[in-house]
Design a protein around this nucleic acid. Structure first.
Length: 387
DNA sequence: AAATCTCTCAACCGCACCTGT
DNA sequence: CACAGGTGCGGTTGAGAGATT
């Protein structure tokens, strides 16, 4: 028994919007807010279905949309977040101000995916294609650990994305009285008071973190989600650092000028990462939610809970140490130090099961995650009330 | 100059989730 | 608790623009 269509399709116009239609829609929303999308077309005098109106508004007419070419910074953001989140375009979009999920999705499909592919990086897993077998066999343990991190982080980001969406709505609510009606219609239902906004999934997540159990609601929720791209088997974020790989021109065989620029951008980004790292050490505790996340993760994973990490370093070192440890490998966080440096262990937590490749992998992963951390701290919408 | 191919991106579709009743 | 309506999300499509032959 299928759902009834969102609107009666008979007689409704489809296809490209005309300037007149845009004008009608804009005028109506500016004056009344969108309210119920389903009811909007009739009220606005449009022969469109509500869904079409919503799409036109969110992807094109909204005043806070930035159009045009993506900057290198934005490209990096997309790639790194894609590595972490998979095809969760809306979540990715929350970290790219003024870009729509549709635009990001299109840009990924038409540009970035091809570019990565061309460079020998699997755009799905974000790892070098020829490393596939290696990582599935040789690094299964570490992959499993980091995959778990990816799941948690993914869940957190998903929740944060909701927060961002809703807080954006609330912001524009207060700044744009004309949109009041619509905003009430869309967000008030989930935030009925002035208390910190905690969408259901966020609450679950919060609960999960606090419980310190990997079998929490959120973990279940995330892994069960049919749309989740971060299952144990395919979590892309666990893979070898894209940055390191991209930096290796011998392997990547980058020829095009644009790609060289791109690589340069990555390198610069890594340099900034080093600065960021230093800054962090000098100014701890920093206030980002990511930091809070890592602290929580450290508490969770380092406390000997049942978190299924009896194997590997994470449970011994904690995520915080993995990412932020400022021991002697500090220099390895600089681009030069990178993944190919001195096989110094991540720490004393080494259980002796590692070989040099493991260490390299961890270095790579550390840089990768640090870069994402950096990214999130720069672009994260904010003092998330998450934790 | 015309035909064909390739690329881009706005828009559509269907499914899943959320919320109110 | 179950159901139904509304909304959001991600995958896909197709028209138009630009590039190539």
């Amino acid at each position: 028994m299928g759902r009834s269509p969102c609107c009666d399709k008979v007689g409704l116009k489809k296809g490209p919007w005309t300037p007149e239609e845009d004008q009608k829609l804009l005028a109506y929303i500016e004056e009344h807010g969108h309210g119920s999308w389903r009811a909007l077309p009739a009220k606005a005098g449009l022969e469109r279905c509500g869904k079409s109106c919503r799409l036109r508004w969110t992807n094109y007419l909204r005043p806070d949309i930035k159009r045009g070419k993506f900057s290198m910074q934005e490209e990096q953001t997309i790639i790194q977040l894609h590595a972490l989140l998979g095809n969760r375009w809306s979540a990715i979009a929350t970290h790219l101000p003024k870009r729509t999920d549709n635009e990001i999705k299109n840009y990924w499909n038409t540009h970035l995916k091809k570019r990565l592919d061309k460079m020998g990086i699997d755009p799905v897993t974000h790892k070098p294609k020829n490393d596939a077998i290696l990582s599935t066999e040789g690094h299964s343990k570490s992959a499993s650990n980091l995959s778990h991190m990816a799941q948690w982080e993914s869940a957190r980001l998903e929740a944060e994305a909701r927060l961002v969406r809703e807080s954006k709505l609330r912001t524009s609510h207060s700044s744009s009285p004309s949109l009041q009606h619509s905003l009430i219609g869309t967000s008030a239902s989930s935030s009925s008071s002035s208390a910190p906004l905690l969408p259901s999934s966020t609450r679950s997540l919060d609960h999960a973190w606090n419980n310190g159990s990997s079998t929490s609601t959120v973990a279940t929720r995330v892994s069960e989600s049919p749309t989740s791209t971060l299952s144990e088997n395919n979590a892309p974020a666990v893979m070898t650092s894209v940055i390191e790989f991209v930096g290796s021109s011998e392997r990547a065989m980058v020829k095009e000028e644009g790609e060289r620029e791109w690589n340069k951008g990555f390198h610069e980004s890594s340099t900034h990462l080093g600065e960021y790292k230093d800054g962090m050490e000098n100014s701890m505790p920093f206030t980002s939610s990511l930091h809070e996340l890592t602290v929580t993760m450290a508490t969770t994973w380092g406390s000997g809970t049942t978190s299924a990490h009896e194997h590997g370093h994470v449970s011994e070192e904690g995520f915080t140490n993995l990412l932020l440890n400022s021991n002697s490998d500090h220099r390895s966080l600089s681009p030069e130090g990178g993944g190919e440096s001195n096989n110094n262990c991540l720490g004393n937590g080494s259980d002796g099961h590692n070989n040099g490749n493991d260490n390299e992998l961890y270095e790579d992963n550390k840089i990768y995650w640090n870069n994402i951390l950096n990214l999130m701290n720069c672009s994260s919408p904010s003092n998330s009330p998450m934790f």
